[in-house]
Design a protein around this nucleic acid. Structure first.
Length: 860
RNA sequence: GCCUGGGUGGCGGAACAGGUAGACGCAAGGGACUUAAAAUCCCUCGGGGUUUAUCCCUGUACGAGUUCGAUUCUCGUCCCAGGCACCA
């Protein structure tokens, strides 16, 4: 065995050997228990960054571990290959999105291979290939047939100068990121998936996902946001129109003093037309259309509104209520109209104070509420007042009785409303999967016939000015005869699908990536699905995971699969974060594009740069770290080890390279230990005898070995805490450094061999190359044909226990005691302890708490 | 703003069911080896105090509370991160 650890040599050697032997190739084997381990596939941005390395190292460790545990492990990799960055890069670098994407895939595949990840590359998929997205188009047709895909109008960010739709990310404080001009909301007809049909089902099943982190389940539940309430109809004064509101607080209806409509609400224009308010309303609505209408934007703007000129009648109190349009009312939630109860809702309260509107208290709290002096709304429970026949009732009961009243008097009805909205999948973009629909002047919207699939995205088209999609202008793509009436003037839908559609079913495609008869081979999916362990960034905790759960339900209802939930266990990895660096002329900078130190400057223009906040690494902010630097300097094993050792996976990590040196040093320590011991341990076999016959020193070592096996196994199996698993191995290695070889003692050498074999086995999922190299030096076949070590229970039992003595909860003394001593003995020993006696100093003992075999607390 | 997390030495983190705070590693300081350096090995390492001890006080973002005992549970505050529906 070489004296020195040379990662570059052993890593390339074993990478090649494993690839030649196709050791990662996996096939369906009903004889073996399957384990489907999946990491979220990456967007092919061109280079892997540390976040990917962290994610995929975690996955690889689990895959290798489960493999050694005897499972038939499916561990695939692929590319979420459609999306905006390809278009941006095409504009910036004058390349083509397809070319850019495929080049990036090649570059990143190479990088992933260098990391030594155990993927079955024969199953690789790229979502931008027609073989993949044709099945997505096929499913779209099925969904359209079932009414699950439909078209309706909705709003997009529109930049007039660029004549283009902008993603939220492309809007920077209300302005277009390219031309800097204001962005406004524009109404467009777009395609939607009816995810709200499954709102209740998705919600109920949140509680049937025990393998998911509680926080993700909580986020999903809140996102779906079920609320139970009522729809109430308000008559408009001097009109046949009615305004329908949704409220969860119908108990407060007597306190409703005004009405707020979303600016997009169709009644707004109708009601103000012809009144003196028409002009102010139009100005207001126009102005609001320039505001960010996302929930984030809406909640952060100051609440404002304008009177529409119309009044409506409170159906219970009979009061005249002015109808406003207000920026805090959302068209997408409930009915887009809010009955405003300023006394009991904070937003309504702020609004009423601002516009000097009536406040009527209808639910009294313990302190008597006075509208004149209230400084905030009272949303809590209490007794009804100012509410006619309902006075004196507890408001929690009034919720029911008022709902009854509304229903019996035909003024409204009980309703359940969800915060969840239907999934808008239309994108006015080029680099995405075409939606397989045709617009015919005579027949309307006509689906493409199944036999015409796939509708192939032309890969050679160039983007237009301002990044506009070329698809509408490409006659050879857009012009097509109508499948129904053969009219030659029909046009294809030129919107493409949201890339979340591709990522909502890719995990099934991996089961049979080359299948040509459908989305996937039912037999393969039946064997492999659902995914046993899914691993990915916590930033996907809501959208991607919810869409995948929804899509899985659609597939089930169509009869393609039998399971409802795609991911049995989920690990959400914390973000790898880093500060952003921004240059006034060159925008965001990569870490190596600015100088180091205190006074940081842009390397290309020497201007001072602005150091931004620490946030998740992303291509667009350029705050990414290229793992290649670590890879070149230390090799894949050290890089992998460091990513895991730095922190537990669910925690976010502010990137800092300090510490990588220590990981490299540790692997060197392992190597040197093996190199020195190898001549002695090579000829012997690992200790396999009884612990009882061992001399004390070896007995301790034996116990340490088994304790380490136990700890590492638990840390991986139960909680994926690789950092503590690695420190346990470090402790064992530190202990081994205290022993020296003695060739005359076979007892020692065989125990050393057991120790080394254990260290190597335990490290092998984390640092596969060095493990394989040492393993082969030990004269063994591939370590990945080996079984995971199993601890011996008897080795975990301690002979002596350390008992801690506290006085009034403060540590005062400790002593060792035989492991079988009972509590009474321990209490006596504690009380008679010299130091304890001194501290007690004759004071009366009020209480003694004995925690079994661990601690005594004496209260004086 | 709303939802979800997080905050422990100079740094990354440990303490898994309320019971020794700081495992393991980095950085720093001291020492050994060496002609020298690197590498390696050994020691010290939260803060403060003194009688220098198996010593005392203090300390897990901040402020309260529950408890014999709180980094851990409860309430309030501050700060940071993720998500907020067209980034993926």
């Amino acid at each position: 065995m070489e004296d020195r650890y040379k990662p570059d040599i052993i890593e390339s050697k074993w990478r090649k050997s494993w690839e030649d032997a196709k050791i990662y190739k996996v096939s369906d084997d009903p004889e073996k228990e399957k384990y489907y381990l999946l990491e979220m596939f990456p967007y092919p941005s061109g280079k892997i960054h540390i976040g990917h390395v962290r994610n995929y190292t975690i996955g690889d460790v689990v895959a290798r571990y489960k493999h050694m545990k005897g499972f038939n492990v499916l561990h695939p990799m692929g590319w979420d290959a459609f999306g905006m960055p390809a278009e941006n890069a095409a504009i910036a670098n004058k390349t083509h999105p397809a070319r850019w994407t495929y080049d990036n895939i090649d570059a990143m595949r190479l990088q992933l291979k260098q990391m030594g990840f155990s993927y079955d590359w024969d199953r690789e998929i790229a979502t931008c290939r027609p073989e993949y997205y044709r099945w997505e188009q096929w499913l779209f047709l099925k969904m359209y047939e079932k009414g699950m895909a439909y078209r309706k109008e909705s709003y997009v960010n529109w930049c007039e100068p660029c004549q283009t739709v902008l993603a939220n990310e492309q809007v920077e404080s209300g302005m277009c990121w390219r031309c800097g001009k204001p962005v406004r909301q524009k109404k467009l007809a777009q395609w939607f998936f009816r995810i709200t049909d499954y709102a209740d089902d998705l919600l109920v099943h949140c509680d049937l996902l025990p393998g998911w982190p509680d926080k993700v389940v909580a986020m999903q539940k809140n996102w779906i946001g079920k609320s139970i309430g009522a729809e109430i109809r308000f008559a408009v004064e001097n009109s046949s129109e009615q305004i329908v509101v949704f409220t969860t607080r119908q108990d407060t209806i007597f306190g409703a003093t005004f009405m707020c409509l979303a600016p997009e609400h169709p009644m707004v224009q109708k009601l103000s037309k012809g009144t003196i308010q028409e002009q102010p309303v139009n100005t207001f609505v126009e102005r609001i259309s320039m505001q960010d209408r996302s929930s984030k934007g809406v909640e952060s703007y100051e609440k404002e509104g304008v009177f529409t000129g119309a009044w409506c009648i409170n159906p219970l109190s009979g009061a005249r209520m002015p109808v406003y349009t207000a920026n805090f009312a959302l068209m997408g939630y409930g009915t887009g109209a809010v009955m405003s109860v300023p006394a009991h809702d904070q937003r309504d309260f702020d609004f009423a104070r601002k516009y000097d509107l009536d406040i009527i208290v209808v639910v009294n709290s313990d302190q008597r509420l006075d509208p004149a002096t209230m400084i905030e709304a009272y949303p809590g429970d209490g007794v009804m007042i100012n509410s006619g026949d309902f006075n004196g009732l507890k408001n929690t009961l009034a919720i029911e009785s008022i709902a009854d009243y509304l229903e019996t008097h035909n003024l409204g009805k009980r309703t359940i409303s969800f915060r969840l909205r239907d999934w808008g999948i239309s994108r006015q973009r080029y680099w995405g999967a075409p939606i397989p629909m045709i617009h015919c002047d005579d027949c309307g919207i006509v689906p493409v016939s199944e036999s015409d699939l796939p509708i192939v995205l032309p890969e050679d088209a160039d983007l237009l000015e301002g990044g506009r999609s070329p698809l509408p202008t490409l006659d050879y793509f857009a012009r097509t005869p109508c499948p129904k009436c053969a009219s030659p003037s029909a046009r294809r839908e030129t919107d493409t699908m949201d890339t979340f559609v591709e990522s909502s079913w890719y995990f099934q495609r991996y089961c049979s990536p080359d299948y040509h008869e459908g989305m996937f081979d039912p037999k393969a999916v039946d064997y492999w699905m659902p995914v046993d362990q899914y691993i990915g960034g916590v930033e996907h905790a809501i959208l991607h995971l919810l869409y995948s759960r929804y899509y899985t339900r659609v597939l089930r209802d169509i009869g393609l699969i039998t399971y409802k939930e795609p991911f049995t266990r989920l690990l959400t990895q914390g973000m790898v974060c880093k500060e952003t660096v921004h240059c006034p002329t060159h925008g965001f900078l990569f870490p190596d594009e600015s100088t180091e130190g205190k006074d940081r400057r842009c390397k290309s223009c020497d201007q001072a740069v602005v150091i931004g906040r620490v946030e998740k690494m992303s291509k667009s902010k350029k705050n990414v770290v290229d793992p290649n630097i670590l890879l070149e300097k230390y090799g894949a094993d050290t890089t992998r080890l460091f990513c895991l050792f730095a922190s537990p996976p669910e925690r976010s990590l502010e990137w800092n390279e300090q510490g990588v040196e220590g990981c490299y040093r540790f692997l060197n320590r392992v190597w040197r230990l093996c190199a020195v011991w190898m001549p002695y341990i090579q000829p012997v076999i690992a200790f396999d005898g009884s612990m009882d016959d061992l001399e004390l020193e070896l007995r301790d070592l034996y116990k340490k070995i088994h304790h380490t096996i136990y700890k590492v196994t638990n840390d991986i199996e139960d909680r994926f805490h690789f950092n503590t698993a690695i420190s346990a191995v470090m402790e064992l290695v530190n202990m081994l450094y205290g022993f020296s070889v003695d060739e005359r003692s076979p007892a020692k050498t065989s125990m050393y061999r057991l120790a080394i074999e254990s260290v190597v086995l335990l490290l092998s999922p984390v640092t596969p190359h060095i493990a394989e190299e040492i393993w082969s030096e030990l004269g063994k076949p591939s370590i990945f044909k080996s079984s995971w070590p199993i601890h011996r229970t008897e080795a975990l039992i301690k002979d002596m226990l350390l008992v801690v003595v506290q006085i009034n909860g403060k540590l005062r003394s400790k002593f060792s005691v035989a492991a079988d001593a009972d509590d009474a003995v321990i209490e006596q020993l504690a009380l008679s302890d010299e130091r304890v006696q001194k501290m007690i100093d004759g004071k009366p003992i009020r209480k003694v708490v004995v925690v079994q075999k661990k601690l005594v607390n004496i209260v004086i």
